[in-house]
């Protein structure tokens, strides 16, 4: 287990305004099934880019 960062969000400071991901969004970033699917999609996107050269 890794230690979680401690965002310091205070009103009117720079970190107060940006959008931050929900727990679900963060969980999906390392969800193996979803990420395997994204792995395939990302490879297709990159190959498409390579073919444009």
């Amino acid at each position: 287990m890794t230690e979680q960062p401690q965002p310091e969000r205070q009103p009117y400071e720079q970190s107060f305004y940006p959008a931050v991901p929900t727990r679900f969004t963060k969980a999906m970033r390392t969800n193996l099934l979803w990420q395997f699917f994204r792995f395939v999609i990302l490879n297709i996107k990159m190959l498409r880019m390579v073919r444009k050269h």
Partner: peptide, 14 residues
């Protein structure tokens, strides 16, 4: 927008 979001999420000042 996405970059600021990541910095905020990870507690990095800029």
């Amino acid at each position: 927008v996405f970059t600021e979001s990541l910095y905020t999420e990870r507690g990095v000042k800029w």
